[in-house]
Simulated assay, not measured.
Amino acid sequence: MSKNKLTEKDLVKVMTPHNAHADELAQLTEADWLSYVDDAGKSDTDFLTQRDDVQDGNRLEVAMSILAEWGATPDQIDSILPPDSEDDVDERAYCILSIKRYLRGHFNNPVNQAGFMRMKNNNEFFEGRTPLDIISSGSLTALREVEARIRNIGAW
């Protein structure tokens, strides 16, 4: 029985992002922006403020776009990201980006990723309300809590 040795060319031919270290080869795109939102550990500085080179827009514009994708009305968007509140707008945008990232991690289907925020949830915290209804209250505490609940889906 003879065994042919695989060459590097043979291995590269069948390489995909799912079976290789694609992160070493990939170029960062706008679609990858949300991958920077990770609540695994807090840093001394806000590394998100240094990521403007990744895309043309800013975090607030991306967060507004995400809210629209979730079906938020202009009034809801203004409640969640108040235009006159510069003090906590970065944290609010961070929470929206974080929710989006965790939904992408929990659901493969983009329809489910966006639809989850409009789905009534009978979990004790949500009490029949949708996550979008809760964050539309404008409360930063509510936004943080929804982000934490979505981050921990499956642990409920």
Rank of each mutant, 00 (worst) to 15 (best):
G115W: 09
E30D: 13
K9T: 11
Y94E: 05
P110K: 01
G154T: 00
N122M: 10
K42Q: 11
L132M: 00
V14C: 04
V111L: 09
E30M: 12
V146M: 05
E30Y: 06
R118Y: 12
E24K: 09
K5F: 15
L97D: 01
S65Y: 06
N112L: 13
G128W: 07
Y102V: 01
S43E: 12
D87A: 14
V111N: 01
R59Y: 04
A148G: 04
D32H: 07
D78Q: 09
E86V: 08
E61S: 13
P131H: 07
S85V: 15
P110E: 03
L97F: 03
M1Y: 06
H106G: 01
L60M: 07
L132T: 01
A72F: 04
I134D: 02
R92F: 01
E147N: 14
V54Q: 01
D56K: 13
D32M: 11
E147V: 06
E147G: 12
D133H: 06
G71E: 08
S139V: 03
P74Q: 05
K3S: 15
E124A: 10
S137L: 04
I99D: 00
D46E: 06
A22M: 06
R59T: 04
A114D: 14
M1V: 12
A31W: 07
P82Q: 03
T29Y: 11
I66Q: 03
S98Y: 03
L25F: 15
P17D: 06
M117T: 02
R59G: 09
L34F: 13
F116N: 00
C95H: 10
A142V: 06
I80N: 04
L25M: 11
L34D: 04
V12S: 15
D39K: 09
L25S: 07
P82D: 01
L60R: 12
F126P: 04
V12R: 15
E24S: 12
N109M: 02
S137K: 05
W70D: 05
K13A: 10
T73P: 07
N123S: 10
E86M: 10
D38P: 05
G128T: 00
S79K: 09
D133N: 07
W33C: 04
M64E: 11
A31P: 02
A114M: 12
W156A: 14
G128R: 11
Q27W: 13
I134S: 02
E127C: 15
E69L: 12
K5S: 15
H21G: 09
N121L: 11
C95P: 00
P110N: 07
L11N: 00
R118L: 14
D84E: 13
D23M: 14
S79Y: 03
L28W: 04
K5P: 14
A31T: 10
D56E: 14
P83Q: 03
F126Y: 15
V62T: 10
F125P: 02
A72M: 03
S43P: 05
N121M: 03
R129V: 03
R151F: 03
L103W: 07
D44K: 10
V146W: 02
R101K: 13
K100P: 03
L28R: 12
E91M: 11
T16M: 03
P74D: 13
E24D: 12
P17S: 13
I153R: 06
M1D: 13
N123G: 10
K120P: 07
Q76S: 09
K13L: 14
